[in-house]
Design a protein around this nucleic acid. Sequence first.
DNA 1: ATGAAGGTTGCAAGCACTGCAACACCGCTG
DNA 2: CAGCGGTGTTGCAGTGCTTGCAACCTTCAT
Lengths: 253, 253
Amino acid sequence: MSQTVDRALSILPLLAEGPADLGQVADRLGVHKSTALRLLRTLHEHGLVYRQSDQRYRLGARLFALAQEAMENLDVREIAHPHLVRLNETCGHTVHLAVYEENEVLYIDKVESRYPVRMYSRIGKPVAITVAAVAKLLLADLPEHERRAVAEKLDYPTYTSRSTPNAGAFLRELEKVREQGWATDLGGHEESINCVAAPVRGADGRVVAAMSVSAPNVVVTADELLTLLPLVRRTADAISGEYSGRTPVKGTV
Amino acid sequence: MSQTVDRALSILPLLAEGPADLGQVADRLGVHKSTALRLLRTLHEHGLVYRQSDQRYRLGARLFALAQEAMENLDVREIAHPHLVRLNETCGHTVHLAVYEENEVLYIDKVESRYPVRMYSRIGKPVAITVAAVAKLLLADLPEHERRAVAEKLDYPTYTSRSTPNAGAFLRELEKVREQGWATDLGGHEESINCVAAPVRGADGRVVAAMSVSAPNVVVTADELLTLLPLVRRTADAISGEYSGRTPVKGTV
DNA sequence: ATGAAGGTTGCAAGCACTGCAACACCGCTG
DNA sequence: CAGCGGTGTTGCAGTGCTTGCAACCTTCAT
């Protein structure tokens, strides 16, 4: 909608791939070097890009700080956190909290497993949307037409033999998840890792977040992990209750 | 340098404080509502802001993803990580890795303490620059005039009675740190928490990062923590060696 | 129903952005 | 040392993008 800003912002994902020099940026934007220079300067002044010693540009520190601040302002996260910790203390496995936003699902909190074998993930990282248990819950709650639209648009990478193969299968899975009110991922992302997940709902019943417990096969079998389902659901319900109970408008300055 | 982009980017820190509606954004930018709307739309298209159900804007998911990706592309971090984990396995305490960038010091990696009492910190969060041990090391390495300039510009919050009180004291501390090649923070940020830190150097001897071990008084006394200094320094040196050894230009697309 | 508050759209005017071209600054090579 | 290619930077004039306005729309409360 705004050409200049549009161009400037296009630089960010470009730099996320790795450092680049002025020429490269200008080329990939399809603008003159001088134009790219001025855009980069503006981004620089705001701390969003940083000029390293070899003069190449990369993303800057303020970006982290912004993401950080934004994360801490999420109400659900704040409310859920103590519950997640408690759940982790009970079962010992990795606990995740995730939200859906514009075709992406991302982790907004995580409590590490207390077992030595841990799974890799990171707060802020987009989730494997077609297979993750939390993603299924979040997408299953979308209105039917939107759900279908999203499912059609997605790629379906074959992480393992049990990954969701295509939109049709995904939509059926979402339907099932929608009815049963919980979801699993049994080796659909990483062969040896299983998850069980339950939804966190707002006062209106809409799913606002989803939480999951994940553990590798070497620690507990899928069946053993499933025995935790009631506990996970109870935790999610507790969070839902607290979240819908009060509606703090703490953001109002 | 570019008015439009400048205005658009000014919206980000504003939203980091909390969600805001169109009017508020327009007011704080000092522009007409329609202008603010168009800027917000552009930011929205790039996923940097998100429009929540009550129509108010807040920072968007892509921001997290960007910050995340940028973080993973930092060479030092990648090289250092296994060393940090090993150090944590040996001593059990919280281990941090931090870098300096444009008047800010921020954590780029962290391995959690294995003791139940943990300190609060978060990757990406700016560090208390006037007291943290890692910050002292990073600033101590700046050229003299720049070091002075930065020190003058900083605020010196009194976190505890042992916090660095002013620029003069800070510069003297930096001089000391510079000579001895390591740094401590003994209750300067939180009364009961102590840290020891050592620098990671590039091939040219410049400090590119700093790492620290932190532990609360209730777990180990400051004196006990200091006995870890040789271990911390050895770890930092190992990282330095590996970092300066190879210079992978992995970012070249 | 009526009004107020906030969000959205079309439009004309002006200025901020763009691309150009010339310059400055390396590091190389003959 | 001079010449040269590559890269980053700056002044300038034209124009296309951005801006503020005003009118319109939606929603909510009275």
